[in-house]
Design a protein around this nucleic acid. Structure first.
Lengths: 233, 233
DNA sequence: ACCTGAACACCGTTCAAGT
DNA sequence: ACCTGAACACCGTTCAAGT
């Protein structure tokens, strides 16, 4: 009890100063390990060995923190691929951006909820610009640029988010193969009158791969774009 | 203080009995008027003149309640259009289902967050079956049925959810025209090197209509499907 | 079987006080 | 300028007790 070396009576200051960056970094780690429900100011202060007031000095509120964490992940995904190989077509580059985002959302599933909440602002323009440049490289007539670029961004984010939602259902403890088997069996036992189509594709569903399906879907969208808005040169 | 008529000392029982249906109905109303953050058990008990224990008798927890509310809205949107006009093509029917969902999510923006969370389960098969039947009517080869139907469902839900997220940003008090004007101006002032594409389409963005754009995007996807998987008859 | 309402644990946020 | 930590209001959930 006695004998403490007088100074630093309690809670000595941290070695590294707190910063918005360090807080966002810690938030991403907590979100990755404990999920969206696990991100509390308690968990954050514990990890950063500080008090809630210190965090509020750098960040306005929890919503802003979630937005910043989302921006960090998405920005990282966009920065991953520099310019692509020399012979890459515009389609290749769209695919690269899309799969980068898909993988990022797959690795950080909590990002999906944020991307559907609208509280991220900062990264939208970056994605839009990155995709849009390929739209113009595709030869799409200029008056359709906004529509086509919006469609692509909407489709890519939407499909990736939907996929994350499906993956979220099974949770960390469940085996994917077993889950698909069980779901496929459940589909086969649906009412034949009300669910004739779903019953028919139950087996295809069991065998599908999420990432491949995402990629094929994107190819279909790209094919639709070139079919409806052919390059005019 | 004195003179209360002895019986019904306090909190008389409600006229109509509580039920899961009535609770879900009230939840939808609260969500529509107060938003996702406004749905609390306090608000719910007040509206239903009851205590939290009564709600927990009919509903397991808040998550289940949100899922049930989402199911109710989506089921209503799917039930709205019976079979379509006699001369309707499969494309027409896909469009009808898609726009029904778009409008439902637009009218109940909180649904978007739920649809990206994966906690709804019950309605997914219904949407999938409804779209899937049109995929087979489209003449898509059977071995591609699952992939194509998944793409369509994913695209429709994803695009509608993304749209709701964008609409959510401006909130109830902001005028849409003014918002688009301000955003368009902001786009035009972006850095010309980093945002050349976004700057170019700033004016198109200002003029766009969300619902029309959703519809055009869907048409592009449908065009891609028939281009890549032509009907074989 | 169905409902009441007090109680509990937890969470986001604030703020006077320190350095 | 930056941080501490107690305090506040609020929320989801539980449960003994009633009818």
């Amino acid at each position: 009890m006695a004998g403490v070396t007088s100074r630093t009576h309690r809670s000595p200051r941290r070695a590294e100063a707190l910063s918005r960056e360090r807080i966002v970094e810690a938030a991403v780690e907590v979100l990755d390990t404990a999920g969206e429900g696990g991100l509390t100011f308690r968990a954050l202060t514990e990890r950063l060995t500080t008090g809630p007031g210190a965090i509020y000095w750098h960040v306005a509120n929890k919503g802003e923190l979630l937005g910043a964490a989302t921006d960090a992940v998405v920005a990282g995904a966009l920065a991953a691929e520099p310019a692509g190989p020399p012979g890459a077509t515009p389609q290749d580059r769209v695919r690269a951006v899309a799969l980068g985002l898909f993988d990022a959302i797959d690795a950080h599933p909590w990002v999906a909820a944020q991307l559907s909440g609208g509280s991220w602002q900062a990264t939208t323009p970056r994605i839009f610009e990155s995709i849009g440049r390929q739209v113009s490289a595709l030869g799409v007539p200029q008056r359709n640029w906004f529509t086509v670029a919006s469609l692509l961004v909407q489709h890519i984010l939407g499909a990736a988010v939907q996929n994350a939602a499906n993956a979220h259902v099974l949770g960390p403890g469940v085996d994917r193969g077993e889950f698909l088997d069980a779901l496929s069996r459940a589909w086969q036992e649906l009412d034949p009158d009300d669910y004739s189509f779903t019953r028919t594709v139950a087996d295809q569903m069991r065998r599908h791969d999420d990432r491949e399906q995402f990629s094929e879907g994107l190819d279909l969208v790209l094919a639709g774009i070139t079919a409806v808005h052919p390059a005019r040169d």
